[in-house]
Amino acid sequence: MSTKHHYCNLPQVPTREFSLGLMPNRLEAIIILEKKWVNGTKLKYYFFNDDTFFTNAVDTLGNQQKILWKGTSNEKEAVRNGFQKWMDLEIGLEFEETTNRLESHIRIGFAKGEGSWSYVGRDCWDISKSERTMNFGWNILNDEDTILHEIGHALGLPHEHQNPKAGIVWNETAVYNELAGAPNFWSREKTHYNIIRKINPDEVQGSNWDANSIMHYPFGAGLITAPTQFQNGIQPQGGLSPRDITWVKQFYPKIDRRKFLTIKPFYSEVFDIEAGQQVDFEFEPKETRNYTVRTFGKMDTVMVVSEHVNGEDVYLSGDDDSGEDYNSNIVMKFVAGKKYIINIRLYYKTSSGATCVMIW
């Protein structure tokens, strides 16, 4: 029988429903990018650090207890090191710890016995600021892979063992029985969602299966019936695989602010990029008033407006028009003398050639 493992369990979120009639290639482009952050985002993470936040639970004797979300100083330092390891790859995202829960993107708890998990990418936006978006539910002080795995989810990476290109055929009875016992104690529904279920092939961006990915679970003998070479189990090598590194650099290439374009009111700024690519503008208004920022053309984009303050881009507003029949459109007040950043990431466009954005 297989070796027992603690497994990450992703929170279930509603499946997005798209309008009927979307072309398959347009749908594919949207699914690839919909959970990815706009490149250049500084993701701020927060540790729950007092007794105010907890989960109510009942112990084996029927007594009420509180499972605190706060962690130890050593646990928090281990997670900081995990963020740094991803950032050392010199990607276009940054990570910064914050003590202000209300400005955080990622909120981290250490509630033991609740499993380790994270929301995937931009799903974090929809979670209340009083709730966790990531949890470490067992001792992680000597478990760097779990830390890197959960941060990978926060970047937008799905579970690699659910990649339909893997061709894994499960011994489903054995898998359900394995996960129903210690140390996971999962329901059939949770096991199906996190292991048996195949993710949408578009989520893996047409990539090949990577059995060494940090996003791949280890599996012991008896759980896989095919491919036959894995009937005795799969043990990823540990750490970030070469494909993990290639993937994250592909979606979040290092930002070069020298290439930012200047945008001025009432001038159509033309840009020509491909699906998955991004264009960045700087705007310094000469007068304080409400402005409209809008893309034009038959395309799907996500557009974000930030204010550049003390070397940092502070998020102000965003609009995602993917799968809709309108263009990204933001109306807001800009203040004279300040600098604003407008990031536009393209999901899909109906034809080759240039598109444009205008502010007025």
Rank of each mutant, 00 (worst) to 15 (best):
P201N: 09
E203A: 14
V204F: 14
V204C: 04
N208T: 11
W209L: 09
W209C: 12
N212K: 02
A221H: 09
I224M: 01
A226Q: 06
A226L: 06
T228P: 02
T228D: 06
F230I: 05
Q231V: 13
Q231Y: 00
G233Y: 08
I234T: 03
Q235K: 12
G239D: 11
S241K: 00
S241N: 00
P242N: 10
P242K: 04
I245R: 03
I245P: 00
W247Q: 03
V248Q: 07
P253Y: 04
P253R: 09
R258D: 13
K259P: 01
T262A: 10
T262G: 02
P265W: 06
F266R: 13
F266D: 15
F266S: 15
A275P: 15
A275Y: 09
A275R: 12
Q278D: 05
F283S: 13
E284A: 06
R289P: 04
T292Q: 02
T295L: 02
D300G: 13
V305H: 01
V305W: 00
E307M: 14
H308G: 01
V309I: 15
E312P: 05
D313L: 06
Y315V: 07
S317L: 10
D319W: 12
D320A: 06
D320W: 09
D321A: 14
D325V: 07
D325L: 03
I330C: 03
M332Y: 04
V335H: 09
G337F: 01
K338Q: 14
N343I: 05
N343K: 15
I344S: 05
